[in-house]
Write a protein that binds this DNA or RNA. Structure first.
Lengths: 151, 151
DNA sequence: TCCGATTGTATCGGACACAAATAGATCGAC
DNA sequence: GTCGATCTATTTGTGTCCGATACAATCGGA
């Protein structure tokens, strides 16, 4: 079994060989690309993801947000506090189950949706992938996430 | 132009449609998978990436590390201080150019390489991609990173 | 009713990640 | 050679992230 430049040995510790680094670098590069667009909306990237969910579904519990975004409540709690301080969402305990906290859009939060509509298009353009490449990447990343998360 | 479930409208704000989220989730899932392995080595994930470079190349400046990892020196400085406090690296200004700081492995740092050799294999197994899928993913992520970083 | 177990949220500590400001060192135009 | 511009690394401030822990509310059984 010989090795080529394209297929390095399995035990390689070279940074460039590793998918994990390509993933890590791509994720930060995309976030950085979002930054100026989201700055105009007054949002950080994870805050934007929370708003995406709320624009689709008006009332979401912290637990549901965590399940959808794969984030711990210890990450979401301070994030939601900042969104609340920005006047974009409200938080209140559900009357039927006081363990749960319902997150809802304020009017300002709902209004922000229109200004956010151009963001995905701009990012999509910047990514510069063909629809086939985009679909392939999404499929592989989801497979990867599933495999890595379980087992 | 009609839309299907596989090809949503361009202006969609649905979380599940977005490659950016698949990327973000995959990156955090992989990092989480690394955590227990790296805990045994006393490293965090970005620290591990720095060590990968140092195992390949004994003396690297902060600037070179930043270029390779796409990280700002304001991120690397405290990270390198922690590696230095762990006794894995040394930092000292280069005699020929005192603006530059040379980062080098200590003996402990060099020794850690052997214990780290099983990590990429374990992660590769957990990712569960075929060699073709792995190669495709790396290629697409690099293309994405290039496109998003420039322009 | 009362107590333990479960579920869910909040807090705390440590470590990234980046922008902006700062401090030293070097280089270049003159 | 001097002085301003540039380069390198650090510091500071804000915002994620996560593990561990603490706290609050609910539910179940005796």
């Amino acid at each position: 079994m010989d090795r080529t430049a394209a297929e390095p040995a399995e035990g390689s510790l070279l940074l460039d060989d590793q998918l994990c680094f390509a993933l890590y670098a791509a994720s930060r590069a995309v976030t950085a690309r979002y930054r100026p667009l989201l700055d105009e909306l007054g949002l950080t990237y994870p805050q934007y993801l929370v708003m995406l969910l709320l624009w689709d579904q008006d009332s979401v519990s912290v637990r549901e947000l965590g399940a959808a975004l794969q984030l711990e409540s210890s990450t979401l709690s301070p994030l939601l506090k900042r969104l609340e301080a920005s006047g974009l969402v409200t938080r209140e305990r559900r009357p039927d189950d006081e363990r749960s906290v319902a997150v809802r859009l304020t009017e300002d939060g709902a209004r922000l949706r229109d200004r956010a509509r151009s963001v995905p298009v701009a990012i999509g353009d910047a990514m510069g992938l063909t629809p086939e490449q985009d679909a392939t990447a999404k499929q592989l990343l989801r497979l990867l996430t599933t495999n890595v998360s379980e087992g």
